[in-house]
Write a protein that binds this DNA or RNA. Structure first.
Lengths: 338, 338
DNA sequence: TATATTTGCGTAAACGATTGTACATTTGCT
DNA sequence: AGCAAATGTACAATCGTTTACGCAAATATA
């Protein structure tokens, strides 16, 4: 920088006041410390005139407050997480805080390293969708007193607060919908197996099938990616006895399914039915608009941030663990079997 | 935090060395200052044992280095910018820097405020897609010596380096494609009028039309949103003489077009043709796969970050202003007129 | 007028790391 | 042995804020 950065010392000199007074005026504590109107005026004018910009580092060093929240997601290129990021980023900003967004790339090692880096930045809170069932490094921070909220993915057996969808119920809704339409042979293509949402979705699926007396089902796959959806669908299609319906556990997986189906010239829902988790605007414009289990992304984000700041305001506040009801959106991708 | 944060002072005490030595070991300058092997060992062990986490604020206050880059985009909920954010975030992290992502919501006032906030955080660089033609606040930072790179949107008449698509050429490609397919009455639905990409796209469109001797065209709209696409299409459809093709200047606009067309039961490409700017995986799975002008998002991001860090490494480095060639992807949304 | 209270502001010590300078000790060389 | 060079480490100032404490002047009260 060519220009010397102006500090409160400069302002103090220019106004003939002390840095204390300047600091108090500029941080809005003028009334509290009974700084005279004239002095306030002088300080504010000088600050504007000299184009003063506070140095957060100095302030934060002194106060220990960073005004920073960390957000760690497994994959920003997944539209579901992208919209979570967008919502949470906006929500946090309303509190005057900023967000540091990290992408763990579904890799617990990266997640751990990111966390370590973030710790050095004195983050005041953490919103995370843990990418695996490794919880130790997160639990550690939580126990140190850092406000932590899990979104989407979480740990069932830990104390850490979370906000997510009722995945079990969502999966049941979707499966019931398929069953009610006469489907008896259904394949469920799952994502990361160790993640709680995935487990619960699979549980909802299998239980509903079993309860309906249907046992001709399968659960395949292991990743929330387009590729996984594509490969597993390809494999399913090569089987002797094809399923009549697919249940994709994420919209990325569903996209992979569609790609495979298209390649094989299999029509939805005429030849096979498809239902997916996650909503997205584009689902409506697809060749066959996809029925889906819509997660309340906006609500999840808002509640998570509300929890976070409630805890920040009052250390004793104990955010809870909440599951929001999903909505099933019935479109045209599920056909009736006779 | 319940646990006292350990500082290098604590390590110094524990090891019986000075903070100087500890600092030098921990910041990898041990060799440079000839710290003995044994001391290095002791410090490193103590650090691990005491679970030392460096305080970036303190370091940054002293050095002035924040290891932080700011990224300001007009709208994170636009898939195009979401993918830019994802790419850039990842790219920056490779350099050991972190990214602060801001959403200006297409509002120059917000953009200005964000910038002011970021300045207080001592950002070392700025990547921005300016949301309007107000350039003063950005130019100011640039002139102060802050490395700045514009992506996607930029200012043609300023020195500030940028990386974007050759929007003019892209628009010509798309328009030519329509013209070659016999379309004579074409409407172009544009986004934010003051933005350079929009201007150049409109220019490419109108010039190509004029060059082809076609004058039955219109340019409507004023926002890169689904709603704008929807409303303008609705209006266009109510006209006496409908266009035979639509050129949407972003994928959000295209989605709005599709919504309106669907409502009116107008088929693509049978009744009307549609081509759009911006690629997205889902475009392939739409009822009619959408032809589009694909922007090299990944290259744009990578080059921008390369520029940024080249400039950071060497203040004299002068990043240039580059336009990358778009690719037209012809799918099924443009029909042939007889 | 003398004392108590309020008003208005300043002194100086932190916060935790980095770093220019300087000094002691050891080693190497003649 | 005597001196230079190499080796290993420490002191103390500094970055820009915040804040506990304290004091003077102005005003109110008796």
């Amino acid at each position: 920088m060519a220009t010397h950065k102006v500090s409160i010392t400069d302002i103090a000199q220019k106004t003939g006041l002390s840095t204390t007074t300047v600091s108090r005026v500029l941080s809005g504590k003028a009334e509290q410390y009974r700084i005279g109107k004239k002095s306030q005026q002088k300080v504010k004018e000088a600050a504007k005139e000299m184009h003063y910009v506070p140095n957060h580092f100095a302030a934060n060093l002194r106060t220990g407050k960073s005004n920073t929240i960390a957000l760690i997601l497994p994959s920003l290129s997944n539209p579901f997480f992208a919209s979570i990021a967008s919502e949470i980023n906006a929500e946090i900003r309303r509190f005057g805080y900023i967000t540091i967004i990290s992408d763990s790339d579904e890799n617990p090692e990266i997640e751990k390293m990111e966390l370590e880096q973030l710790r050095a930045r004195n983050i005041e809170g953490l919103v995370i969708a843990p990418c695996s069932d490794h919880w130790e490094h997160i639990q550690e921070l939580y126990e140190e007193g850092l406000p932590v909220v899990c979104v989407d993915r979480y740990f069932e057996d830990l104390d850490i607060p979370y906000v997510s969808t009722d995945n079990y119920e969502g999966a049941k809704m979707a499966t019931r919908h398929l069953v009610e339409n006469g489907h008896k042979a259904i394949s469920c293509i799952q994502g990361v197996r160790s993640s709680t949402p995935n487990k619960l979705r699979v549980k909802g699926f299998t239980e509903t099938m079993n309860d309906a007396g249907l046992h001709d089902y399968s659960v395949v796959g292991d990743d929330f990616t387009v590729q996984n959806g594509y490969l597993e669908t390809k494999l399913l299609l090569q089987q002797g006895k094809r399923p009549t319906a697919l249940f994709a556990l994420s919209n990325t997986i569903a996209m992979g399914c569609m790609k495979a189906l298209k390649e094989e010239n299999i029509r939805i829902p005429d030849d096979i039915s498809l239902i997916t988790f996650d909503e997205h605007p584009y689902l409506d414009y697809l060749a066959t608009p996809l029925s889906c289990v819509a997660q309340p992304v906006s609500d999840i984000s808002k509640i998570a941030i509300k929890f976070l700041f409630a805890k920040l305001d009052n250390g004793d506040f104990k955010p809870s663990q909440v599951l929001l009801k999903p909505k099933i959106q019935i479109k045209e991708s599920v056909g009736k079997m006779r």
